[in-house]
Structure formats: C-alpha cells, structure tokens
Simulated scan of single mutants.
Amino acid sequence: MIATKGYAAQNATTDPALWSFEHREPGPNDILIDIHFCGICHSDIHQARNEWGNALYPMVPGHEIVGTVARVGSAVTKFKVGDKAGVGCMVDSCRVCPSCKAGEEQYCDKGATVWTYNSKTDAGLTFGGYSDKIVLDESFALHIPDNLNLAATAPLLCAGITTYSPLRHFGAGEGKRIGIVGLGGLGHMALKFSHAFGAHTVQFTTSASKIEDAKKLGADEVILTKEAGWDANLGRTFDFVLDCVSAPHDITPYLGLLKRDAVYCSVGIPETPIQVAAFAVAMGRKHVTGSAIGGIKETQEMLDFCGKHNIVSDIEMTTFDKLSEAWVRVVKADVKYRFVLDTKSL
C-alpha cells in the first residue's frame, strides 16, 4: 500500500483536516500520480457538507487534479514516468454499456461510474485530490498539453469540461447567439469556450463589478440582470443559454430569451429543484435540460483544444492551511475565478 496524506472531512459539520491514508499499489494498468495542484470545486463543499445527501466519510475531496506520473504498471501504454497527467471527476465505469462504449462514461447505464472521491468500491472508498498522490487506471487519466500552465489547467478537469461539453453538444459556434448565466468558476470557462468557438456570446451577471472582466474574457455583450427590465427586447433571440449558477434562482426570464426549439441548459446544479412554468416552454417548444461533465475522450479533446488556443482557468492559488477560508469565499462567490490548492503546502 502507498502511504498518502491529505485533507479529509470526517463528518458534515467540520471542515477537512490533515489525515493519513493509503492507496493501493499500482496494478498492471494503473499509474501513480504525484499531485502538484488541485482545484477547489463548489461540489467539494456540497458533498463534504452532505448537501446532496450522498456523503461517505471520511471524505477526501478534489476532482480537478494535475501532477506528474511517478510509477506505471507493467501493461500501461498511454503514460510514462515524468509525463504530466490529470484526473477529473471519475476513475472508472462499467465500460461495457452503450453509454460507456459511446465515450459517455459519466452517464453509465449501469450506474457504475466510480467518482474520483466519495464512491464506494469493493476495495473501499475513493479518495480525491486534496492529497499528495492518487492511483488510477490509465484509461481514466488525461494528458496535459505541455504549453499550459499546470496550476491553471487543474480547473479544466471539472469546470472546463462541464461547460465545454454542452456548448459543443448543442452547437455553439459561428452564427449562433449564446447566453452564459453567471460569471464564476464555471461561467468564466463557458465564456472563454463560447468565444473561442466563434459564437456571439452574451454574459448575464448580477455583479456590476464583473462587467469589465466579462468583456476581457471574451463577452460581446454583458447584461446586468439586477436592473429592472433587463430582458426587454431580448425575447426569442438566443440559440442556447448555459446557466452556470449554483444558487437557487428563477430561470423563467432566461426561457423567454430562447428562440423556437432552442435550449436552456443548467450545469450549476442548484440545491433545490428548478421550477419551470409550463407555458414558458410550451410557447416556442423550448427545451430545458442539464449536462454532467464529459466523457474521457471528450475531456482529452477539450484539453487539446485548450492547448491549441492557450485556454486555462483564471485562478487564485491557496494553501491547505487556508482551506476553510477558501471554502467560505467559494460559497460567497468571492473568487476570480477558481481556487487551486498547492500540494506543496501539505
């Protein structure tokens, strides 16, 4: 077994603290990654505090992981020692169902997706990237383009693919008018991708202080939604709206922006159910949907796209001794735009 140290939540009411645990020895198809950086995702907080009702303790959060390969199993072909590697939200699936065979492992039809942390396996619980090491099958590890800043690449493994996937799936690109709701960890990545795809991109935000940031990040227009009548004259003018807000909010005004047959997609995953007025979707045959990360193949595609276009997350570096403070700021949306933990601080 491989001795590992990290930060673990022991229950729903206390913040993660230093904890020692073990990973398995790498098998023939496994790689051992020395973790250098791990992004802080709002879902880490949701799960550690059992806000989604599925928490397993002790829990070592973290699924935006980057580092270098330290060991490889005898049958490994994708990686060699010294390679930069990343780990996102999942480390295994059934691999044989239609969804897995289609490269959509996150939607495994057998419900057998093994999440990077907070999953129960025959070998025990999975532990994530708030730690110094991780062992996983090479099939679920990602190559990191050499030209990308490693720390700023970490959030691409969740915030990046979570926004890239629906934008690609629903056809964001030249000639399309795309709305991005919320300018936070997810929203700023969505804005960068939509702009890079060539779409006319409109950023919606409640924060006047973020207007200039949005323009710098690639927004063609910025709409401040705290102002009364903000949606006047915008009805039925959008091909797609991607909602990146994790707090409960009324989506009805955004449905009014959609063209006939257009799509509103939620990736923020609010804690409370989304309320949809029947007439808001019936009049215009509009679609309300969601999206969850992306498969391994698409995540690698996203990373390669980022390498080609030099796209990374805007980050604030932090250390483990300041984790509780960072979590408070994440909940307050007081970070531009993603915290990344430096594992050297362990």
Score class of each variant (00 low, 15 high):
residue 51 E to R: 06
residue 233 N to A: 03
residue 269 I to D: 07
residue 331 V to C: 03
residue 295 G to A: 12
residue 49 R to V: 01
residue 88 G to M: 06
residue 199 A to C: 13
residue 121 T to R: 05
residue 150 L to Q: 13
residue 40 I to T: 08
residue 11 N to W: 09
residue 159 A to M: 05
residue 38 C to I: 05
residue 155 P to M: 07
residue 154 A to M: 12
residue 76 V to S: 01
residue 42 H to G: 10
residue 272 T to E: 09
residue 125 L to Q: 15
residue 29 N to R: 08
residue 42 H to R: 15
residue 185 G to H: 12
residue 140 F to Y: 13
residue 27 G to I: 01
residue 220 D to M: 04
residue 186 L to N: 05
residue 153 T to Y: 08
residue 161 I to D: 04
residue 74 S to I: 03
residue 227 E to C: 01
residue 332 K to Q: 10
residue 222 V to T: 07
residue 142 L to N: 11
residue 106 Q to P: 10
residue 128 G to Q: 04
residue 206 T to Y: 08
residue 79 F to P: 03
residue 249 H to N: 02
residue 182 G to I: 05
residue 327 W to M: 15
residue 126 T to F: 10
residue 213 D to I: 12
residue 144 I to S: 01
residue 10 Q to S: 10
residue 323 L to I: 07
residue 339 F to Y: 12
residue 187 G to K: 05
residue 122 D to V: 02
residue 309 H to S: 01
residue 205 T to Q: 01
residue 300 Q to C: 01
residue 90 M to C: 06
residue 21 F to W: 14
residue 14 T to P: 00
residue 211 I to N: 01
residue 22 E to R: 09
residue 21 F to K: 02
residue 112 A to M: 14
residue 343 T to H: 11
residue 328 V to M: 08
residue 118 N to K: 08
residue 280 A to D: 08
residue 176 K to W: 08
residue 95 R to E: 04
residue 163 T to F: 03
residue 344 K to E: 15
residue 306 C to G: 13
residue 132 D to W: 06
residue 185 G to K: 12
residue 11 N to A: 04
residue 288 V to E: 06
residue 170 F to E: 14
residue 151 A to V: 02
residue 204 F to D: 00
residue 6 G to S: 12
residue 176 K to N: 04
residue 277 A to K: 14
residue 96 V to N: 09
residue 334 D to G: 05
residue 69 V to C: 12
residue 165 S to N: 15
residue 314 D to R: 13
residue 124 G to Y: 03
residue 211 I to L: 04
residue 99 S to Y: 02
residue 272 T to I: 04
residue 339 F to R: 00
residue 150 L to S: 01
residue 1 M to T: 06
residue 111 G to R: 15
residue 64 E to L: 10
residue 76 V to I: 07
residue 270 P to K: 00
residue 257 L to V: 01
residue 163 T to M: 02
residue 344 K to H: 13
residue 136 L to G: 10
residue 321 D to R: 02
residue 80 K to F: 02
residue 330 V to K: 02
residue 171 G to D: 14
residue 336 K to T: 09
residue 170 F to R: 11
residue 29 N to K: 13
residue 14 T to C: 11
residue 61 P to L: 04
residue 346 L to M: 14
residue 337 Y to S: 15
residue 311 I to L: 11
residue 291 S to K: 10
residue 174 E to M: 12
residue 67 G to N: 09
residue 196 A to T: 12
residue 331 V to A: 15
residue 245 V to H: 06
residue 283 M to E: 12
residue 197 F to W: 00
residue 346 L to C: 14
residue 41 C to M: 07
residue 173 G to A: 03
residue 298 E to M: 15
residue 289 T to F: 02
residue 25 E to Y: 01
residue 8 A to P: 13
residue 233 N to P: 00
residue 66 V to W: 05
residue 83 D to Q: 07
residue 154 A to D: 11
residue 267 V to F: 05
residue 22 E to T: 15
residue 42 H to V: 07
residue 317 M to N: 05
residue 173 G to M: 11
residue 179 G to E: 10
residue 346 L to N: 13
residue 177 R to N: 10
residue 271 E to H: 13
residue 245 V to W: 11
